[in-house]
Design a protein around this nucleic acid. Structure first.
Lengths: 226, 226
DNA sequence: TTTTAATGTTACAGAAATATTACAAATTAA
DNA sequence: TTAATTTGTAATATTTCTGTAACATTAAAA
């Protein structure tokens, strides 16, 4: 089951871009260009998540947040706020007033999408797939467990993220740089050779007796999940 | 089918670099160094995607964007804007005025190429054909795999690039120098006879029992994919 | 036919990419 | 706090790839 997402954002072009792409991903999306009306429509729409612009012409994001948190029907509605660069302080206020995550404009749709899923995964696991499966490999994102042929496997945090990444894009070959960019936290400087070591660790963990190798080395290109 | 890309950018060196590399990847590329002329040429050229510099001497990127979005023939033309570091605020404006993605200078060609393909994949999937097919030969660029009559074939990096090149231009004969220029990384000096050896290696790999030879030698001219 | 030029084939040494290991520093758990 | 785990890197080992030279074969020219 895919979830419902409501957007309150006064810049029509952003709404259009985001709405269009989310719908493509299978979400049901509704939106409003201003705060007061948005609040009303939202409560009728009953979304699984709200994307909320921080700077609206009428109501402030904080006010909307507070209103929602006061309403017993919506007090647990996950909220991701959209904030312009330089409104850093607002982020603090945002988190204080019960926002689940924030995305700074300008953002790529991919970034937004990833955060939406991450938030939904925590709050409403039904809505978003949380088990990643490839052949006899299974990874549960919520319970943070990994199985190969129903046998549980212990992984360190980095190997877990690495495998999670491969599982979301099986068969595709990724360069070390791409892997670094996606799997490692932002702005860390890690030798790209370091990937090799983590690949080795991951391989060592997921390769069990008698089962085939699942990670493919593509010389001069990178690695892929078979 | 190969995609067409138009570039509006006033720094000739960037244009040259990008144009050259995109052509190497099989795109048809045209460009203009200034906004007003660019707009006219673009509409004649009918590209699948526009690379647009944000700071042009005459027209601003925003103006060009708006002009394009107003023209019913081009209102859906994907646009990637090139912005200099520190013009962060412009990015916001960029997304507002309907840009699909942006790349910050200085950028690596790989990054640009990846974004171009990502955008095209959404807007015009035919254009970024991931699979190159010729008769019973199939090359998957994303998975980096090659098949002949559905049987997978193992190739080294150079042979892979060589075959990829031939597949983007089947039947056409290329001289050794042309092949070197396109298939080998820039600024390497290799004997042109070296090509012969790689052709041999490629032939050996893709020629399977009972199937016909796919690479044709054209004496005094070069080689072609049949 | 003989000669000549172009291409095919082979083997190999060095280069380049990846695998593996060990270890110290950093992080987390107890 | 100490102990245990995790991380990144550097050093080393191993594998695979590359380019070239030498020789063989083929096709065209004389």
């Amino acid at each position: 089951m895919k979830g419902k997402i409501f957007i309150i954002e006064d810049e029509a072009s952003i709404v259009q871009l985001v709405q269009h792409n989310l719908e493509k991903e299978g979400f049901v999306v509704s939106s409003s260009l201003n705060g007061n009306e948005g609040l009303k429509e939202l409560k009728k729409f009953e979304p699984n998540l709200l994307l909320l612009d921080w700077m609206l012409p009428d109501l402030s994001g904080i006010d909307i947040c507070k209103n929602i948190r006061r309403d017993s029907n919506f007090k647990n509605l996950p909220i991701i706020m959209l904030t312009a660069k330089g409104e850093e302080e607002d982020k603090v206020k945002g988190l204080e007033s019960g926002v689940d995550d924030y995305v700074t404009k300008p953002f790529s749709f991919n970034e937004l999408s990833a955060r939406i899923k991450a938030v939904l995964r925590r709050s409403d696991p039904k809505v978003v797939a949380n088990e990643l499966i490839f052949e006899d490999l299974k990874l549960d994102r919520i319970e943070k467990r990994v199985f190969r042929s129903d046998k549980e496997i212990q992984l360190g945090p980095t190997e877990f993220r690495l495998l999670e990444f491969f599982l979301t894009n099986p068969k595709r070959v990724y360069s070390r740089d791409q892997i670094l960019e996606i799997v490692w936290p932002n702005n860390v400087n890690v030798e790209s050779r370091t990937i090799d070591v983590h690949i080795r660790r991951l391989r060592q963990s997921i390769n069990i007796e008698g089962k085939k190798e699942l990670i493919r080395t593509v010389r001069a290109s990178g690695y892929s999940l078979i």
